[in-house]
Amino acid sequence: MKSSRSFLLLFAGVLLALVAGGVALAVAVHRAGVIVVEVTPAEGCHGDRVSLRVPGALVAGAAFFLPERELREASAELRRWGPLALQALHELGRAPNCELVRVDGPAERVRIAKQDRCLVVDVRDGSEVVHLVVPLATAKAVLQRLARA
């Protein structure tokens, strides 16, 4: 009787831990956002259509498994500008949603904006339209990983 009670308690504990872990993971994935890369042909143009959606948490996590040698090479380059980029990302995180840069030309349009904790880049030229969404938290996590290498 006593052993079955212990088993039930253990089972409930494991279940609770699994649920709590699942909720924590879901919150982390939601907070990290989704990296979006979309390339579509401009109106009236032919070309490939690329659409990529990757959870930011996956990219940030993958950064921890990058080979040390590759990381060191990348981080040597980043050592100079890394702190600057990190500081910019931190301050950008505090700023409200806004359009940071907009270039309107006869052949090209570029828009860089902060939108819902993400950096959004839209580029439209004569042949294609590129839409890029990078969650600030992911960019920050990857930069921090590179800085530690």
Binding site: P83, L84, R94, L100, R102, D104, G105, P106
Partner: peptide
């Protein structure tokens, strides 16, 4: 002109200030 571009930049001053603080070159 017809080929003229227009550029708009909007920067929160605290962002500009802290980024400038981090520049060392």
């Amino acid at each position: 002109g017809e080929d003229g571009e227009s550029v708009s930049i909007n920067l929160p001053l605290p962002l500009a200030e802290s980024v400038l603080q981090s520049i060392d070159c």
